[in-house]
Nucleic acid binder design. Structure first.
Lengths: 265, 265
DNA sequence: CGACTAGTTGAGGCCAGTCAATGTTGGTGG
DNA sequence: CCACCAACATTGACTGGCCTCAACTAGTCG
């Protein structure tokens, strides 16, 4: 495995705790002004000059392989992370060991937000595929935000959007039936892929049935059965993790149309 | 009903839309430096001088009667609201009309946060009893935060804590059984009352069985049955909405101890 | 006093969980 | 290239926890 020598530079960094995840985190070069995710990310609406300042603050870029940890529950919070490429899941942990998927994050999204409150990360972020991350030290971000009102407002918006997203998931978990939950999930993915310029009708799930179930408050068998049933009913076509949406309207109807409201999920 | 003439001053304000709620919103005088909730609120850690600036920015104080609306889903977001006295519930609304209680907020807590993201309030805030509110215009708050790093950080913390709180509710809704949910709910209330100097073992619920059920993703009958069962088992004593906790340990054990982590609920 | 809202309790049904067997996929090493 | 293995996925049979429907009680307010 290449890259051993460089990656030791991260040994003291907070976002790596397990030995094997350290080994393949690699620096890459990237700049906000040439990043395709700019319009979805924190710098949206910034002037070129201001953009340059934010870009300068992104001192580190990470590459994670599938299954590697970006940060772990309870570790020190130091930075926000922007997903540049790939995707991650975040999981929260109950005291009794139960674990639940709390979020699925794709490119252009910011994660690590929940650490701001306590100074410690409140969840565990794991790459679902090979993934690239921009690291934004939070103290520097706060400092810069005092000079750039637009950036300040974007930070507030990002945090508040996360709250709104969580509320819609609470609604889903608290009051929807299994089929509605899965329908909402699929429609939400479809919308998010669409917004990123990918097909809204054909995509590959990055999560296992168990992870999807955990996210939706269901068991993996239930998820599997529902996929099969949706296929029987002509709503979708499933082949393992490859999904083709055949009847988007019906899916949206199942979910009570309450999907398009929230960006992330 | 007194106060008609004054309250017309709020007619153009965003946080009142229904006629009857306007009528009893009344201004009161209050200042942060003499407020008992200071240590739980946004100005925590501020110097006296800085505190004065925040206090100056709280230009309006509202009094709501039980059942009155502070803000409504979809109305313009202009300010954050600090609960000075009393309590409120916030509810989110699905497109199909289903409504769910998303939060129970007591004195010292900040609400209205979710409106920052879109500029429109994402939920509906209703007083559960006679309640006093401090109104903090958000644009002024943002401006002031640029000069006061502590305030800026407190805003970030408040937002992030709300995210952490939502995550723990998602965990509750997604993976706990009915009795665990109610146990967590009671322990959480107990902790919050305790922190505010009230009894941690005896308090009065401000929500109906239906509202509690909605909040916990259960039906009101289930909540009622569980209260009865907890009483049979000697965990609590219930008399309508009056609760006495008899066996806090057992209650905490039921909830997997995952309660004390989050402040609000 | 009557109408209404909130709460309790019981009987029965259904949705999703549990347990278990089998099939499929993808990565690894001979 | 194929055999093998482990992880992932599907499907069936059964169970059980919570919901639904319903009757009844206790306060509350005009």
């Amino acid at each position: 495995m290449p890259g051993y020598s460089r990656s030791t530079a991260f040994a003291e960094s907070s976002h790596t705790t397990s030995a094997n995840s350290i080994l393949s985190l690699r620096e890459i070069k990237a700049q906000c002004n040439i990043c395709g995710m700019r319009s979805l990310c924190l710098p949206v609406g910034l002037s070129p000059d201001d953009l340059q300042q934010v870009s300068a603050l992104v001192d580190t870029h990470l590459k994670l392989k599938k299954g590697e940890t970006l940060y772990r529950t309870g570790t020190l919070f130091t930075a926000l992370y922007a997903v540049r490429l790939g995707s991650l899941k975040t999981t929260v942990l109950a005291e009794d060991g139960r674990e639940q998927v709390a979020g699925y994050h794709m490119l252009g999204e910011l994660i690590g937000l929940d650490g701001i409150g306590t100074g410690l990360h409140g969840c565990h972020a794991i790459a679902l595929e090979d993934t690239e991350i921009c690291v934004m030290p939070f103290d520097q971000l706060e400092t810069l935000a005092r000079e750039l009102p637009t950036l300040q407002h974007n930070i507030h918006q990002t945090l508040a959007q996360e709250i709104a997203r969580d509320h819609s998931i609470m609604l889903l978990l608290g009051s929807m039936r299994a089929e509605e939950r899965l329908a909402v999930f699929l429609v939400n993915l479809s919308d998010r892929y669409c917004r990123r310029g990918y097909s809204s009708t054909e995509f590959v799930l990055r999560m296992t049935r168990e992870e999807i179930g955990s996210y939706l408050g269901l068991k993996l068998e239930t998820v599997s059965r529902l996929f099969s049933r949706f296929q029987e009913e002509g709503l979708i076509q499933v082949q393992g993790r490859a999904i083709k949406i055949l009847n988007s309207e019906a899916l949206r109807a199942l979910g009570g149309h309450q999907n398009s409201a929230s960006e992330t999920a």
